[in-house]
């Protein structure tokens, strides 16, 4: 099955891709339990997708916490509700902003990388070479990458949340004499660990679909160097769209289940 042309804005291509991604997902699940797990490649992918994204997520997270605090503080101060600032920032970052923003960054960095890499392997016949030597390129290339993104994104988001929290403290500290202990106690005063579950489950789905979509776009990319660029581009665009769709569904589900 070869994609006709990634990012073609026609209805036929859209449904072709939806069906392709669904088939790809079932194939991943089947492969995960049926075939030998490529442990070394999985660890290598965890390193590439997770560890090598730490700096990007870390810097963004600190800036996110800092900027949110600097912008919201005067508004809350005007309402006499400055004491609520740590709690408000923490809840908004952990439940919504952190997962979505970090997932979008992850899609841009890791998704495009996976799309381009697999597409390039397709163009240079490396995937064909694996197939004709009776090895399983899907198992080696796709299962490891999707598993790595599924596991690493929640860890990165947790790491980013903590740094955003720290960034927020720095932002507030610049304007007041608040101690870290007080900031911490206010941030967690109305926050329960159960609040983290929907966000964590959401990020697992974000990571999974970033991996699946990027792998699909690369694995079935068009031939030639143009195909590589299109696969990378399509991986980011489609993943970003799916992140918002999953977020929308997750918010509705959380709302229904909470009440």
């Amino acid at each position: 099955m070869e994609r006709k042309s990634p990012l073609d804005l026609n209805l036929e291509q859209f449904f072709f891709d939806i069906a392709g991604i669904a088939t790809f997902t079932f194939r991943y699940i089947g492969s995960l339990f049926r075939n030998r797990f490529e442990g070394r490649e999985f660890i290598s992918q965890c390193y590439r997708t997770g560890y090598q994204s730490l700096l990007l997520i870390g810097i963004t997270a600190i800036i996110l916490g800092l900027v949110l605090t600097i912008q919201i503080r005067p508004i809350l101060a005007g309402l006499g509700a400055e004491a609520w600032l740590p709690n408000m920032i923490f809840i908004s970052v952990v439940t919504e902003m952190g997962p979505v923003i970090f997932a979008l960054l992850f899609a841009g960095k890791v998704g495009s990388g996976i799309g381009a890499e697999l597409s390039s392997m397709r163009v240079t016949e490396q995937i064909d070479a694996m197939e004709v030597s009776a090895t399983n390129p899907f198992n080696y290339l796709v299962v490891t990458r999707v598993s790595a993104t599924t596991i690493m994104l929640p860890i990165l988001v947790f790491f980013g949340d903590m740094l955003a929290f720290f960034g927020s403290f720095i932002g507030l500290r610049a304007y007041s004499e608040i101690s870290f202990k007080l900031f911490y106690s206010r941030a967690f005063s109305e926050f329960y660990f159960s609040d983290m579950f929907p966000a964590t489950i959401k990020t697992i789905f974000f990571g999974f679909f970033i991996g699946i979509i990027a792998s699909y776009m690369g694995y079935y990319s068009g031939r030639g160097t143009e195909g590589v660029g299109k696969a990378a581009n399509a991986a980011v665009v489609a993943s970003s769209l799916v992140i918002f769709l999953i977020d929308l569904v997750a918010v509705q589900l959380t709302d229904i289940l909470t009440f």
């Binding site: 240079t124 490396q126 070479a129 694996m130 030597s133 009776a134 090895t135």
Partner: peptide, 26 residues
């Protein structure tokens, strides 16, 4: 055995690893 036009070597592996790859999986 299949020799592709450009060799189709796995570019993330050394020559030794390229040869080891199919052997380790058969």
């Amino acid at each position: 055995g299949y020799l592709f036009q450009e060799g189709a070597l796995y570019d993330s592996m050394s020559v030794r690893e390229n040869l080891k790859f199919p052997a380790k999986r058969n």
